[in-house]
Simulated assay, not measured.
Amino acid sequence: MPGWLLCIPGLFGLAIGSFGNVVAYRVPAGLSLTRPSHCPHCDAPVRWWQNVPVASWLALRGRCATCRAPIRWTYPLVEAACAALFVLVTWFLFAGARSPAPADVAVAVALWWLAAVTVILTVIDLDTHRLPDVIVLPGYPVAGAGLLVACLLGAPWPSLGRAVAGMAILAGLYGLLRLIRPDGMGGGDVKLAGLLGLYLGWFGWGALAVGTLAGFVLGGLFGIALIAFGRAGRRSAIPYGPWMLAGAWLGIVLGEPVATGYLRLVGAA
C-alpha cells in the first residue's frame, strides 16, 4: 500500500476527532450535539476557519478568537490522537497489500469506530469517571455489522463465532468482578468489556487473553502510581476504561504473536 494513501485515513481521523471533542464535552454535560459550535465562556459562534483540526488551535494560540479565554489543550490532542489511530489501523490491516481485500475494509471500518470511541471515552472517563451508554452501546451493532459484512465478503465465519464468544467471556468476567466488588468495578466497565471482547475475539484467542491481561496490568500500574504519588488512596475511584481500551489495542496488534511465543516457550520448557 503506497504510504501517501495513509493521508486519507489521517485526514478522516482529524475530522472525526474534531467531532469527538464535541461529543466528549457535551455528552457528560447533557448538552445537545446538534447545536453549532460556540465558545463556552462568551457563547460566540466558532467560525469554520476557527474549527480546522489542530491548525486552528495553533493559529489561535489556544485561545478564543472573541474573548481570548483559553481553549483546552486536549482539543488538538484528541484530534491528533484520532488521526494517528486511524492511520495505524489502516497500516496494520493493509501494510504490504497492493489492493485492500473487501473483507479487510469492513474490518477497518469497525476498527476506525473503535479508534474514535477509544479517544472519546478516554477523555470522558479521565474527566468524569464515566463511560456513557450512549457512546459504548452503539459500538455493539457497529462492530457486529462490520464483522458480519467481513464474513459475507470472504472472512472466515469461525472468526465471527469466536468474536461472539469473546464478547460473552469478557462481559461475564467483568460482570462477575462487579458482583464480587461493586465499588471496584462500574457498570460502564462491564458494558465496555463486552464490546472489547467482540473485537479481541475476532482477532484470536491469544488476542483475547493478552488484551484482557494487559488491561488489568495497565490499570493496576496506573492505580499504584496514583497511590505512590499521593493522588489517590486505596479506596479511591480510578478511571479504568482507558486502560481496558489500551489493553485491547495491545491485544489486537500483539496478542496473537505474544501468545504464540509464550506457548512455544512453555512447550520448550
Rank of each mutant, 00 (worst) to 15 (best):
T128N: 10
T128P: 02
T128V: 11
T128Y: 15
L131R: 05
P132H: 11
P132N: 07
D133M: 03
D133P: 10
V134P: 05
V134F: 02
V136P: 02
V136Y: 02
L137M: 13
L137K: 00
L137P: 00
G139R: 11
Y140M: 12
Y140N: 09
P141F: 05
P141N: 02
V142S: 05
V142M: 02
A143S: 14
A143H: 04
G144T: 14
A145K: 00
A145D: 10
A145F: 13
G146S: 14
G146C: 06
G146T: 11
G146R: 08
L147V: 01
L148F: 15
L148Y: 15
A150Q: 09
A150S: 15
A150V: 13
C151Q: 11
C151F: 07
L152A: 15
L152E: 09
L152Y: 08
G154V: 09
G154F: 07
A155M: 08
A155P: 13
P156S: 10
W157K: 12
W157C: 09
W157S: 14
W157T: 14
W157P: 11
P158F: 13
S159C: 10
S159T: 06
L160V: 13
L160T: 12
G161A: 15
R162F: 14
R162V: 14
R162G: 08
R162Q: 15
A163G: 06
A163I: 07
A163M: 08
V164L: 15
A165F: 14
G166W: 09
G166K: 09
M167I: 01
A168E: 01
I169A: 15
I169E: 01
I169L: 15
L170V: 11
L170N: 06
L170H: 04
L170A: 09
A171E: 01
G172D: 04
G172T: 02
L173K: 05
L173V: 14
Y174T: 02
Y174H: 10
Y174G: 00
G175M: 07
L177P: 08
L177R: 01
R178E: 04
R178I: 05
I180C: 03
I180N: 00
I180H: 00
I180M: 07
R181S: 14
R181W: 12
R181N: 09
P182L: 02
P182T: 05
M185L: 11
G187H: 09
G188Y: 03
G188E: 03
D189S: 09
V190H: 13
K191Y: 10
K191I: 12
L192G: 11
A193H: 06
A193K: 08
A193E: 03
A193V: 04
G194Q: 02
G194P: 13
G194F: 10
L195T: 06
L196Y: 12
L196I: 10
G197E: 10
G197Q: 10
L198T: 04
L198D: 03
L200T: 03
G201H: 01
G201Y: 00
G201F: 05
G201N: 03
F203P: 06
F203Q: 08
W205R: 09
G206T: 05
G206N: 07
A207V: 06
A207E: 07
L208Y: 07
A209N: 01
V210D: 07
V210Q: 08
V210W: 05
G211W: 01
G211E: 01
G211S: 04
G211R: 01
